[in-house]
Computed example of a mutant assay.
Amino acid sequence: MRQKLFDSILKHAENEYPNEACGLIVDTGKTQKFIPCKNMSDNPKEHFLISPDEQLEAEKQGEIIMIIHSHPDSPMLVPSEFDRIQCDYSGIEWGIVSYPEGDFCTISPRVNRDYTGRQWLLGYADCWALIMDYYQREFNITLKNYSVPHEWWEDGKENIYDDNWQAEGFIEVDLKDIKIGDIIMMKLNSNVTNHAALYVGDNLILHHSYGQLSSRTPYGKYFRDRTVRIVRNKERFDAK
């Protein structure tokens, strides 16, 4: 990165401190320029959010090739798992600068990640996020995002799975007819259905349990006793 470009980024981080600064690097065809943006997050000291309007304005000047944000008071510049997940979603490189230290690193979107071994991050890397990724990659089916960054099942007043599985295009099937790609919905330490897993064959499920790494696990007595329903997407109803 050219020094002039980096100096512009660091200056914006200084101006926004102690909040996270954010911006975009655009390739105009002749040069690369940094466009500072306003942090629209409700918690700007911990997160950043760039408005769609600012992104559209930036795109008028050229191709957005990097999303920039700062980590205030970060002695060791280590991208968080939240950074990495958001970078994956964005589809382009991210640049992170520490302020006032002035360190800089980049991360790139992770393509075709393994389904197992993913870190847990409620609302972004949880059981439904894993299912969405699996369905998109394996079946080219886009599911609505029902992952939310709070423990919605705690008070028993929300029923995200029970309320939405039919509207999302699923049909209930019997255990004896279970096939690869079917979704098993369960109650784990909750009064409401709060967990979902993918059946991947050979009596194994692929799932992402609370606070754990995603894994393939035998569909044994523990999970069977807590199963509420098994569902199959209508587009896959005749799947072998």
Rank of each mutant, 00 (worst) to 15 (best):
T217F: 01
G117K: 15
K30I: 01
T142V: 11
F48W: 13
D114Y: 09
A13K: 09
G102V: 10
R229C: 00
G91I: 12
G62C: 06
R216W: 00
E93K: 14
Q32M: 10
I50N: 02
E154C: 06
L5M: 14
R226P: 08
R226T: 05
V78W: 09
K144L: 11
Y134L: 06
K187F: 06
M185F: 12
D202Q: 15
V200Y: 04
K144W: 08
G211N: 10
S74R: 10
K33T: 11
T227W: 05
G181R: 00
H47D: 13
K60G: 11
A239P: 00
Y99S: 06
I64W: 09
K30T: 14
Q166V: 04
D27Y: 14
L5N: 12
V228K: 03
I85L: 15
N112T: 00
Y135Q: 01
S190T: 04
E158Y: 02
G181C: 05
K221P: 07
L121P: 06
E158A: 00
H69S: 02
T31M: 08
A58M: 03
C37W: 02
Y199G: 06
N39K: 04
A58Y: 07
N203Q: 09
A196Q: 10
S74P: 08
G95A: 01
I205A: 00
D42W: 12
C105Y: 08
G156V: 06
C105W: 02
A58F: 07
S8E: 13
Y115L: 12
N233F: 07
S215N: 13
F34C: 06
L175E: 15
G156R: 08
I92A: 04
F34D: 05
S214L: 01
V231R: 04
D163W: 00
E63N: 11
T142Q: 15
E81T: 12
Y161Q: 03
L206N: 05
H150E: 10
D182S: 12
G123D: 08
Y210H: 11
E81H: 15
A196M: 10
D83V: 12
L143T: 03
V97W: 00
F48N: 01
